[in-house]
């Protein structure tokens, strides 16, 4: 164990961990939203994310950007960022809706058992991932340098870049907006109603199918933003980009309390930072092992997760 290494690098590890955690958190919202309403783990969410990472790459490619391009001017940077975000959000949102319509809705209409949903979820995930894998020859794609990482704040040995700030702030803003939407709007009330009691909600005139589509769409939107942030932070994507990160995101959702939006955010940040600390303390090969051992420990004492309450259920 390397305590001095961890202490020396504590600041930088925290900052990079928070940035990674913000991406995990945005990704985790999709799992938590769908689970909160349907009691279903949407495994295909990792592919919703992956499609987003490719969508913004493709659109940037139309503007002639590739991994060898020069960093654009500030104005160009802004335009490309907005375009990339919009396209990724649309692509991920549509993918999520598509998965809902094709893989889940028909099962729901036939009152299929939960196991059937689990299998179609895994099937949809693998199918989308493999199709993209074949289409891209399983190569990884380099991301154009749309944003140049520059240190803007320095505290001791800790350098914080503009990109890291952007990622964390964007995650917090989106989280806040989503929270307001669920808790403060008519549509949000519908989501909470269906989460609490689908049958009563239907009797009260809530269109259940529409609410469920909305939930998938919202998860997709958040995944789209996470996808663009991932592209910029990691610098490459490929057909299985969503797989390991999806496991992290799912873990974060469970850690914070699945079904709980704020829990997903907390879980994401915690997991991101803890993985970095584990890598610093034990070496990067322990990154996943340490984080998951910790997850088990936390669940032993708080089986419902840190903030453990469900969407709607507790705050009726």
């Amino acid at each position: 164990m390397n305590f001095s290494g961890l202490i020396n690098d504590f600041g930088p590890l925290t900052v990079t961990g928070l940035a990674q955690g913000a991406i995990i958190a945005l990704f985790a919202l999709g799992y938590t939203l769908v689970y909160g309403v349907l009691r279903l783990i949407n495994f295909a969410h990792s592919e919703v994310f992956m499609i987003g990472t490719f969508a913004c790459l493709i659109v940037w490619g139309w503007f002639g950007l590739d991994q060898n391009s020069a960093v654009p001017s500030f104005g160009g940077m802004l335009v490309y960022m907005v375009i990339g975000l919009v396209v990724a959000i649309i692509a991920s949102g549509l993918t999520a809706l598509f998965v809902e319509l094709v893989a889940y809705r028909p099962l729901r209409q036939r009152n299929a058992p939960p196991l059937a949903f689990l299998i179609t979820a895994i099937g949809a995930s693998l199918a989308i991932s493999e199709i993209v894998g074949v289409a891209t020859h399983r190569n990884q794609r380099g991301v154009p340098p749309v944003i140049s990482a520059r240190t803007v704040i320095t505290i001791g040995d800790t350098h914080i870049t503009n990109l890291q700030i952007l990622i964390v702030v964007l995650a917090l803003v989106m989280m806040f907006a989503l929270d307001r939407f669920i808790n403060g709007t008519r549509l949000g009330r519908g989501i909470r109603a269906v989460a609490q009691n689908p049958d009563s909600a239907a009797l009260m005139g809530v269109n259940k199918s529409r609410v469920i589509s909305l939930v998938f769409l919202l998860g997709g939107l958040m995944a789209g933003i996470a996808a663009v942030m991932y592209d910029l932070k990691i610098g490459v994507t490929r057909y299985d980009a969503g797989f390991m990160l999806g496991i992290d995101a799912f873990t974060a959702a469970v850690l914070g309390g699945i079904g709980n939006l704020r829990g997903a955010l907390l879980g994401g940040f915690l997991l991101g930072v803890l993985q970095n600390y584990a890598a610093g303390l034990f070496g990067s090969e322990w990154l996943h092992a340490a984080a998951f051992v910790l997850l088990i420990l936390i669940l032993l004492f708080r089986p419902t997760g840190l903030l453990g309450e469900s969407l709607g259920r507790a705050r009726a």
């Binding site: 690098d9 990079t16 040995d157 390991m244 993985q275 970095n276 990154l287």
Partner: peptide
């Protein structure tokens, strides 16, 4: 394919 965020390694190399 199992790891894409190498920020801990990068930090160690840097410091």
């Amino acid at each position: 394919g199992k790891q894409t965020d190498f920020s801990a390694l990068v930090q160690k190399v840097n410091s």
